[in-house]
Design a protein around this nucleic acid. Structure first.
Lengths: 340, 340
DNA sequence: GCGATCTCTGGAATCGGTTCCATGAAGTTG
DNA sequence: CAACTTCATGGAACCGATTCCAGAGATCGC
């Protein structure tokens, strides 16, 4: 391994000059710069980020905390973050933090407390105040995705609004027997996301003068979860809703699969709407409210880098950037069949 | 931020002693160790991994190269890797390397060539010889998952065998009109996986005295991909196979969905078998050959750490660890209906 | 024409640890 | 009791960069 001293020697300059020439900061004549660069190339020199960050304090890498990898929303966010970071020469270290666990404390104390990261992104993890403080004390920017954390800039869709729009879509089509299949409320993944979507649903229903008693079913945010719940909700023909608002597209698709198995026609006998914009939505002709997780990941990175470049003003700290969900109509929703 | 010098001062010892006390290497009396540890605790000291790795050469982190995040197999592998690494106090830096691209060269030259990682795991990426050499020159262990790389220890299922077993399962049930829906062969993701599965299929068919002309369809490894291909394969009732071997479960499920839409009964009119052990398999009652991506990720980490502990012998270099796929029978396969 | 500013370069300090080496005390062996 | 070995500790070098500071020419304004 060659060091910058080797480069300096070969180019007959001091280490200081070689460093300036390669980093592009400070005065270096064009001629010596060229000589240093070529010297570096011939011996295949690459900087040691460790040594550099030891003195600069910057590591050019950010830590990402995420509860799942194998879930559409989270994987998309991750890809968005990764692409944006790579573009800026940063790399991404991943901590898969499943839930409250001993692991969790270890990650915070052992990994994040060390100054290995320039910044931290928390995706869909409800951080405790202690944890937020811990990260803030490092003086590193912290941004969240997916739900509000006190005092932390967070990027998310407006969940209440999205749920309200979805429910109102069904209401406007004439449905009155509507069920919401949403996330488990006391889930580790609940980050006000589940409760907010339920709130949007309830608000829209109440506003339309409808009761929501017995209209909520909790499900995992997966296709099999939706399928199971679908079988349960649709199993009894006497008390079957005409419209279902699913908290995510995978649940919605699971419900559609269940409906097909039960011989219930979508949308003639049952309208289904989801939230996400999952690739499956098109295939199952699912009406949905699109959010764009990749874009959310990208925005988090943009916000982070802005704060890194401008450490003085905490411009966006505690602020919530809410992205507007967009209704995409497909063939899974229509007016209810006239009742006998 | 407190340094080890602060700890040393507080405990009235030299930096060297403090370092030994905290790392547990070298002679330190029990009494002073306790004093140092308590001093470290009171001022909330944490080591700077940068400074440490500058002198030790170890970073306690590994780089992972992966072409997709949002695909079941890859996400599972990632979770397996992450859990295993965390357990050992390592962390994981992710490079999402979509395909041959300028990005790819940048990642190799800019990120991996620097000595930031103790080891590298390549998941489902066919590395070129140059790239392998580049990594080997770093003297860092390199292990692959998902397909053989020349001179690199790789962990994978035996794809040829898995495909042969799947095909033979259909053959043994009495099917003769069998189609294989597999991966695109000149895909960036092909890593001999697609071609090996096709080879296993062809081998089993040929062995049974059956032709494979026109029996191969290429699909994306996704549910919508399988659905599209399913519509195509099953669309024409006159030349419809009675059995389909899908190269992965998502394709298989897509085909089942297509079959249901076309009114084709599974398994009465059509048997479908996949490879993976995807969570959807159970819901769609899909017969499949299970592989265990999480376990593959874990094994890669084990192999890596073994080599790190024992740098002298390249025990597993170039070796291929092949995991046995296991047939899980569900209700998507049965004998073909008697032909008229 | 002369001090002030700008450009270029090298020496040395620094970041925060680990580890080699020297020193000395205590314990062991023959 | 002399000669080793083992244990415990401190001083100093070192890992590989960046950056501060000083000094030397060149340029510039007045």
């Amino acid at each position: 391994m060659s060091t910058i001293a080797d480069v300096a020697r070969l180019a007959s300059v001091a280490k200081a000059t070689a460093s300036r020439a390669l980093s592009g900061k400070g005065y270096v004549s064009e001629e010596t710069r060229a000589r240093v660069v070529s010297a570096a190339r011939t011996i295949g020199y690459v900087v040691s980020p460790n040594a550099a960050s030891l003195v600069t304090g910057r590591t050019k890498s950010v830590g990402v905390i995420i509860p799942f990898i194998n879930r559409w929303f989270f994987a998309e966010v991750l890809e968005g973050i990764e692409i944006a970071l790579l573009e800026q020469g940063y790399d991404m270290t991943l901590y898969n933090l499943p839930a409250a666990s001993p692991e969790r404390d270890r990650i915070f104390e052992y990994f994040l407390a060390r100054k290995r990261f320039d910044a931290v992104i928390s995706v869909g993890v409800a951080l405790s105040e202690t944890e937020v403080d811990q990260l803030h004390r490092l003086g590193r920017p912290l941004v969240g995705i997916g739900g509000p954390i006190r005092g932390v800039h967070t990027i998310a869709i407006d969940d209440v609004e999205a749920a309200r729009l979805a429910t109102e879509h069904l209401l406007s089509l004439g449905h009155v027997d509507i069920v919401h299949v949403g996330g488990v409320l006391v889930d580790e993944m609940d980050f006000e996301v589940h409760s907010n979507r339920l709130r949007g649903f309830t608000s829209a229903m109440t506003h339309a003068g409808l009761s929501t008693d017995g209209c909520f079913y909790a499900s995992e945010f997966t296709l099999p979860g939706g399928y199971e719940r679908g079988m349960e909700v649709l199993g009894d023909p006497r008390r079957r809703p005409t419209g279902i608002f699913a908290a995510c597209d995978e649940i919605a698709v699971g419900i559609i699969v269940a409906a097909r198995e039960l011989g219930i026609s979508v949308p003639a006998d049952l309208s289904v709407i989801g939230i996400d914009g999952h690739p499956y939505a098109d295939m199952f002709r699912l009406t949905t409210l699109e959010q764009h997780p990749r874009e959310q990941g990208r925005l988090a990175v943009v916000s982070l880098l802005a704060e890194l470049d401008n450490p003085t003003d905490h411009h966006a700290a505690g602020e919530l950037t809410e992205l507007p969900p967009r209704l995409v109509m497909r063939a899974s929703t229509s007016g209810p069949r006239a009742r006998t």
